[in-house]
């Protein structure tokens, strides 16, 4: 047990250290979502009207989704670095060490989740600029959500990368996993107005509950300034117009459940791999 904890800590620390040294990754991690936000703010949001006319503009709707997207990319990227490690040989050093491999997977999972939390923290700081009011509670709740979904997605990535050995495989993951996960998460359009097939797919996508949860969290301290709900909470307005689908408790429960299941799956798959 002591060895397992030590292993988790050691692997986690390596993830954090190597991350902090990759300037390019740090910069792109911050710049990319900002770029998306800018594009959305200037472009799409002026052309799109959401369900009914709740008085919530598209940028506000999209903002939690962009945080969800960043967490998705960051987590998956952390996980598939296993393929890198394999290609460049470092994984052998870990696999031959007298430590439980599931603990290695856990260390990696927490490493990915930590980076996701850092990223979410940076992104939440721009909330006031787009008219969303923050509170300490919002930040704490968002951290919990980022941790849970970061764990879930990194673990998912590990479960996939544990049996992969090439960069082509990584491209496959990006195309057939990450992009659908994002587009079908409710980040870009609300699940309530989606056609039945998409709705079904969105319902089984864990990221959907993350994004829904983030909306619950992030809108909770902001009041409506226009539309039929003026003066009342944005959450309330979004809820009644189908822009938020479930309650925060429900979202959190689902994400927690998924995080636990995927962590177990990632650890199991990593544990039973060969060189």
């Amino acid at each position: 047990m002591r060895i397992a904890v030590k292993t988790i800590y050691t692997i986690w620390l390596r993830e954090a250290k190597t991350f902090s040294r990759e300037k390019f990754r740090v910069v792109s991690m911050i710049a990319q979502p900002l770029l998306y936000l800018a594009v959305v703010a200037k472009g799409i949001s002026s052309a799109v009207t959401l369900n009914g006319n709740a008085g919530i503009n598209y940028l506000t709707f999209m903002y939690p989704g962009i945080i969800g997207m960043s967490i998705l990319f960051t987590s998956i990227f952390s996980a598939v670095s296993i393929i890198w490690d394999r290609e460049f040989g470092f994984l052998k050093e870990v696999l031959v060490a007298p430590v439980p491999r599931w603990a290695v997977a856990l260390g990696k999972t927490f490493g990915g989740a930590t980076i996701s939390m850092i990223q979410a923290t940076i992104l939440i700081l721009i909330a006031p600029i787009i008219g969303i009011s923050l509170s300490p509670l919002i930040v704490v709740e968002m951290w919990i959500m980022a941790l849970l979904i970061g764990v879930a997605l990194t673990a998912l990535g590990i479960a996939i990368a544990a049996r992969m050995s090439s960069m082509q495989a990584f491209q496959m993951v990006m195309n057939f996993l990450v992009m659908p996960l994002y587009f079908l998460s409710g980040a870009m359009f609300p699940i309530t107005s989606a056609p039945p097939l998409l709705k079904a797919l969105m319902t089984v996508n864990p990221l959907t509950y993350c994004v829904d949860g983030l909306r619950n969290i992030i809108f909770s301290n902001t009041l409506m300034t226009a539309g039929p709900f003026v003066g009342r909470s944005v959450v309330e307005a979004a809820m009644s117009f189908g822009l938020i689908r479930w309650s925060l408790v429900f979202d959190m429960s689902i994400v927690t459940f998924v995080a636990v299941v995927l962590t177990a799956a990632g650890a199991y798959r990593f544990n039973n791999q060969q060189e």
Binding site: R14, E22, F88, G89, L91, E93, V96
Partner: peptide
């Protein structure tokens, strides 16, 4: 019980 020096590289070159 063992230690191993691999034929191919197995260092983390970002550390």
């Amino acid at each position: 019980s063992i230690g191993l020096v691999f034929q191919d590289q197995s260092l983390d070159d970002r550390l």
